[in-house]
């Protein structure tokens, strides 16, 4: 489902003496449907960079990133937008929402952009929030003032609202208590069971052991002479 080959990335900082910072070269990996692959490597080794290259908010210099039939490296913006709507989900560490929009609508939004009716989308959202133990008295509030753990659960609910065939998970259990961590791991297992290809970053080793089928060390993707 996700196929990456010979991927490279260099940042050029035009306002800092045009410094060129190569961060990745020759990166290759595959994630099959129903498989969960964990990215490992020290901080700064490029785990998040790889996730962003796949999501498309970082621009690759060369190589291929295929998600389904689309090569992200060469895709037009509207193709990436369509991919994010229906095929590729992303649970990032940051919640970015329009202030004042209630949690329930934030979580329902991925379904609304797919054309599902408001009531139906909200019902799915409510089910997810309930499962993630977010008290219903919070559902009508904007998540902008929530705690880290609450925001993270909102992000997870959003990422699981639609059954995306491919999922990127950036530290999905980082700020969660044991009970909610167990719920999230269960949701990941269910997504695998329905055939989702999952690529994740998990600092939590127990979580990693529980859901990952394989680990890929991104240190191997560092450009020569850098790592």
């Amino acid at each position: 489902m996700i196929r990456i080959s010979d991927l490279s990335k260099t940042f050029t900082l035009h306002n800092q003496g045009r410094a060129r910072i190569p961060v990745m070269a020759g990166a290759s990996l595959q994630v099959a449907a129903g498989e969960c692959v964990g990215l490992v490597g020290a901080s700064g080794a490029g785990k998040s960079t790889l996730m962003r290259l796949i999501w498309g908010n970082y621009l690759a210099d060369g190589g291929r990133i295929e998600v389904g039939d689309l090569d992200i490296v060469r895709a037009a913006p509207r193709e990436i937008i369509a991919l994010r709507r229906a095929t590729l989900g992303y649970v990032s560490q940051f919640l970015r929402v329009v202030p004042r929009v209630p949690v329930l609508d934030v979580v329902a939004e991925p379904l609304r952009v797919l054309g599902r009716p408001a009531e139906e989308a909200r019902a799915v959202a409510a089910g997810l929030l309930e499962r993630l133990n977010l008290p219903s008295r919070l559902w009508s509030l904007s998540p902008t003032t929530f705690s880290g753990g609450e925001q993270q659960r909102v992000n997870i609910a959003r990422g699981f609202a639609h059954p995306y065939p491919a999922l990127l998970l950036d530290e999905p259990t980082a700020s969660l208590d044991a009970a909610n961590r167990a719920v999230v791991l269960e949701m990941i297992a269910e997504a695998k069971a329905r055939g989702a290809a999952i690529l994740g970053i998990f600092h939590d080793e127990g979580a990693r052991a529980q859901v990952c089928d394989r680990l890929v060390d991104v240190t191997a993707f560092a450009p020569r002479g850098v790592a």
Partner: peptide
């Protein structure tokens, strides 16, 4: 020009880098 989050998160042109930073 490009995808909004790509231009903001990984700006390619010096002017955009300045604008974002």
């Amino acid at each position: 020009q490009g995808l909004t989050d790509q231009v903001l998160d990984d700006p390619q042109h010096g002017y955009t880098q300045l604008l974002v930073s």
